[in-house]
Amino acid sequence: MIKVKNPGLQTTVQDYGRIGFYEVGMPPSGAMDKYSYTASNLLVGNDENAAVLEVTYLGPVLEFQQDAVIAITGGEIPPKINGEPVSMWETLSIKAGDELSFDFVKGGARVYLAVAGGIDVPQIMDSRSTYTLCGIGGLEGRALQAGDVLQVGTDHHHVVKSGTRILEELIPVFSKRHEIRVVIGLCSYRLTEESKERFFSIDWTVTPEANRVGYRFKGERLNFVEREQPFGAGSNPSNVVDLGYPIGSIQVPDGIEPIALLNDAVTGGGYATVCTIISTDLNKMAQIKTNEKVRFIPVAIEEALQARKEHKQKILQMKKHIEGNLEGQMNG
C-alpha cells in the first residue's frame, strides 16, 4: 500500500488509455507522455499497459507501506526518498516506511511514477485511466487527495535489477521553446492563405489554460475565408456542422486563440479543425508548461509515420537494454 500524505497539484492514475469508445464521446484519457510512461513501466518489469501515477508540475508526498520497486521518468521534477535525491529514469528500491517526495519542477511538466505491479484500481471500460470530467476510472474518478491509500497490483512480468538505467541518449531533454509537428488538413480550407501562413510562422505562447483536456495558445488573430455559412453550422465563420475531433487536432474558435485537444478532450463539436499534432509529438506536448513558446511545424504524412517508427525503435532499444538487466521472471 502507498499512503498519500500530500497529493501534489494534480496527480492521477493513468494507463495506456481507454481505447475504442470514442464514438460514444469517451476520450481515451491515459498517460499524456506515452514515451516516459512506457519507460517507467519497462524499468519496473510491468506490463506495458500497467497503471502508473501521472504527476503534474508539483509532486506528491507518498509514504510506502510496503517494500517496492519503482521508477520515475518524464519531466525534470527531481524525486527524493526520505529527503535524499534519487535518480530519474532508473530502477529504484524503496522500503516500507520510506517517504517519496519531489523538488520543484526544473524542466518539462509531467512525471510518471511506476510501481512494480502497477497501481491497482478497478478497470472501467477496459482501462484504469482517470477521466475527471465525468468522474470515472482511477481512484474514484478523481485526482489523488491527502489520506488516499493506493493498492499495488500484479501487472508485472519481470524483476528488474535496481540501478538499471535508461540509456542516456534515450532520455529526452526539455527546453522552454518547442517545435511541434502537425499534419495540415481536416477543415484547414476555412483559414485564409495568409492566416495559414501566419499560423506556422509565429511563436505561440501557452496560456494558463493548459491541462489534460487541451492547451490554449496566445499569438495573433487568424481569419477565416468569407462564405455564406452552410446549413446547420452556426453563424460564426469558425463554425462547421458539428464533427469529430481527432486527438491532437487544433481548432481556432472565432479565430482568437488556437486550442490543441489532448487526452481528455471533447470528441467532437462545431469548430473548424485545421491540423493535427502527430502522435509522436503528443508526448512532447505533455511536457510543455504555461508561458512556454510553441512553433507548429507542418509535415507530410510520411514524415509523421517515419517519426512514429523512430519512436518505436527507441522503445525497442529500451526494452532490449532492460532485458539484459533482469533478475527473474514473475509467475502469473
Binding site: P230, F231, G232, A233, P246, G248, S249, S279, A304
Partner: peptide, 19 residues
C-alpha cells in the same frame, strides 16, 4: 478525405447538414 495526424482519417461527406 483528410488525415487527422497519423492515427485518424476524417471524411467530410458534405459541408451542410441534411438527413
Amino acid at each position: 478525405y483528410e488525415y487527422g495526424g497519423d492515427e485518424f482519417i476524417f471524411v467530410e461527406l458534405a459541408e451542410e447538414m441534411s438527413l
